[in-house]
Simulated assay, not measured.
Amino acid sequence: MTEGVMSPLACTLRTSAGRIFVKGTPVDAPAAWMYRAEAQVTHAASLAPSLLWEVEAGGWLLCGYEFLEGRHPDLSPGSGDLPALVDTLRVMPHRSALTEAARAWTGHRSVAV
Rank of each mutant, 00 (worst) to 15 (best):
G24W: 00
V41Q: 05
S16V: 06
W105K: 07
V22M: 04
V41N: 04
T88C: 13
T15K: 01
P83M: 12
E69P: 11
E56T: 04
K23Y: 00
V5E: 14
F67P: 03
S50I: 00
L51E: 00
C11W: 05
K23H: 03
T99Y: 12
E69G: 08
G59E: 03
G58H: 04
V55Q: 04
L82Y: 09
S16C: 06
L85A: 14
E54R: 07
A48G: 03
S79R: 10
A112L: 13
T15Y: 01
L62F: 04
E3G: 12
V86R: 14
P26Y: 06
C11N: 02
L61R: 07
P93F: 06
D28T: 14
L51D: 00
S79T: 10
K23V: 00
G78C: 11
F67E: 03
C63A: 09
H43W: 06
G4V: 12
A101L: 09
L47G: 02
A112C: 13
Y65D: 00
Y65P: 01
I20C: 01
A97S: 12
S7F: 09
L85W: 12
P93L: 08
W105Q: 09
F67W: 02
L89M: 15
T12Y: 02
R36V: 07
G78T: 09
G64C: 01
A10S: 10
V41T: 05
E54N: 01
P49F: 00
A17D: 03
V113G: 15
V113R: 12
A32P: 15
E56Y: 03
T106M: 13
A104N: 11
Y65K: 00
T42I: 04
H43S: 15
V27N: 05
G107A: 14
R71W: 08
A101G: 07
V5F: 08
D87V: 11
A102H: 09
S96P: 13
Y65W: 02
A10C: 10
T25P: 07
L52M: 03
T88I: 08
A37R: 11
E100Y: 14
V22E: 01
C11H: 02
L75S: 11
S79N: 12
L9G: 01
C63V: 07
A37L: 05
V113C: 09
A44P: 08
T12F: 00
Y35N: 08
P83F: 11
D28A: 15
E3M: 11
R109K: 12
P77V: 07
D74Q: 11
T12D: 01
S7Q: 12
L61M: 03
D87L: 10
R19Y: 00
G107Y: 06
M6H: 09
Q40W: 06
A31V: 15
L13E: 02
D87F: 15
P73Y: 11
A45K: 02
A32V: 14
A104Y: 08
G59R: 07
A44H: 06
Y65N: 03
G80T: 14
C11A: 09
